[in-house]
Amino acid sequence: MRSRGTGVATPVPRAGAARRIRSALAPLLWIGPAIVLIAVVVLWPVVEMVRTSLLKISSSGLTLGSRGAQNYTDLFSEGDLVDVMLRTLVWVVGVVVATMVLSLGLAQLLNARFPGRRVVRWAVIVPWAASVLMTSLIWKWMLDNYFGVVNEVLVDLGVIDKPVNWLAHPTQAMLWMMWVAVFVSLPFASFVILAGLQTVPGEVYEAARVDGAGTFRTYFQITLPLLRPALLIASIINVINVFNSFPIIWAMTQGGPGHATDTTTTFMYKIAFFDQNVGESAAMAVVNFALILVLVLLYLRASRWREEVS
């Protein structure tokens, strides 16, 4: 179109383009609140964590200036860091693997039909619904070398000759804490796998029986592959929860004696509140965050590799 008297073409607004823009922005009305929530609850704390790891902060919380990478230098010069990180890896892998293996069996039991199944399901939820701190304290009292029921039972059964102070020995303490972590992780993983089992069509099992497949073949070639999404979700959430598990270790041993039962989470806490070094503790938090991401990505890669192979 030409404007009168000038002979210059003037653009005409196109209604179609405006409609396309409106249709493209319309989903933001629905996902906008979720994006804002994620930004405030997830992204902003991560940014602040990284920023804090580059600052010098007093014990009262005052920022005293920038330290650059010095907090990371101080962290990696800590003599106990390597042992703590290796112990954390053993802690996470041991607890998650034991939890997933036991959860598979427990989910199969909960999926079976038997009298009182609903009551059993309710009972299984209890360790997960209860406070992790209180569960840890109860187990600490049960393991007491003078009045604990664990020593009393083991002595009565003749397994040990005299009461043992289980939590005073680092290896034994770690094994007991790993058991408590498995105990509180079992319900969630079991119910996620149970939900996966209930989505498997019954016709698949009927077809397997017609083809002459036995129980073990049916389980490993049909049930487990169909449970892959549930196993993936349960494993990833367990990795994150166990990696960041603070109440169990702190309630039972406080990472002691010394740093002998510390993981990166309790080690980070001690740097912040015992050594009064907030910046270095934030650097440990960044490293912790990176380690979780690496573990999750490795697990996802391994799961994708198994899926391609199968």
Rank of each mutant, 00 (worst) to 15 (best):
M178A: 06
V8L: 15
L89M: 09
V239Q: 00
S235M: 04
G202R: 05
S235D: 00
S59Q: 10
G105C: 15
T73Y: 14
D156H: 15
D262V: 14
V150E: 06
I236K: 02
G32S: 07
Y219W: 13
W30T: 00
L167Q: 06
H169Y: 12
L231S: 00
P45S: 05
E78S: 15
L291N: 08
V164W: 02
V96Y: 06
M178L: 11
V192N: 11
T199S: 13
V287Q: 12
F267Q: 07
F267H: 11
G212R: 02
A302K: 04
G148Y: 09
A24D: 09
P27N: 02
I233L: 14
T264E: 05
I222Q: 10
T199N: 11
L110A: 04
P257C: 05
S103F: 15
P27Q: 02
A173R: 02
L102S: 07
S60W: 10
F191W: 11
V294S: 04
V36R: 12
V239A: 01
A24E: 12
I236F: 09
A181V: 03
T265F: 01
E280L: 14
S281N: 09
T88R: 01
D144V: 00
I125Q: 01
V204D: 05
F76R: 14
A302D: 04
L75D: 08
G202M: 05
M252A: 10
D262Q: 00
F191H: 11
G5D: 07
F267V: 12
L300N: 10
Y205I: 08
I193F: 04
F274L: 08
P225V: 03
A208E: 02
I35L: 15
